[in-house]
Design a protein around this nucleic acid. Structure first.
Lengths: 100, 100
DNA sequence: ATAACATATCTATTTTTTTAGATATGTAGA
DNA sequence: TCTACATATCTAAAAAAATAGATATGTTAT
């Protein structure tokens, strides 16, 4: 868990929004076509629509968030689903509380 | 209290270090010449020495931290002392815990 | 008033980040 | 296998951040 790297992710409004949206996928995204739950998160296309940014930009953002271990990807056929990594998010908040 | 702006400050190792050092000034800095306490924080010169960066860079960093309300400056004669703004730091951690 | 000093601001350069178009990869279905 | 589609990666341009030297400002002491 790298505090600097995670803070860098959180220094961008869109990336923070993505993390917040993923907290309540059923409220923030339409249902998926292939499955009827959000257990593995949300596909990239839906996240892209919500941000209004280009596909490559959103993919880059999700990649940086994955590198920081803030999200976990899962393949479902053609789609990649992203969900929050609650353990790392919690560890980050705890680290700030204790060390900062 | 701006989460994005504060996260931007925290995305740099030196700036995080400055905040941490200011938590225990008596441990991390030599005593001041004019006063015998750290109630108003630490003068810029001491912080600069500790970072090893140039005077202008440290001043820029402290300015960005002040803009984010993470530190509070106080003039003492020729010196400007910087101390942590514990209320805002606390509010930031709480906001992350609740909103993130 | 002048000199010395601490800090801030200005200016410029290098590095990093943001962003998107183009292209590549991987998967599912015909 | 060929096509369509979702996502990732490559490439490049523009914007922002990092960094420091030079200069300005404000304060103290002489």
């Amino acid at each position: 868990m790298n505090v600097i790297e995670i803070s860098k992710v959180l220094s961008n409004k869109t990336r923070v929004n993505i993390l917040k949206w993923l907290k309540n996928p059923e409220v923030n995204f339409p249902p998926h076509q292939d499955i009827d739950h959000f257990d593995d998160g949300v596909c990239v296309g839906y996240i892209q629509d919500k941000t209004g940014l280009s596909q490559s930009t959103v993919s880059t953002y999700l990649n940086s968030m994955q590198n920081a271990d803030l999200v976990i990807p899962t393949r479902h056929g053609k789609w990649t689903y992203y969900r929050r990594n609650e353990a790392v998010i919690q560890a980050y908040v705890d680290a700030l509380k204790n060390e900062l």
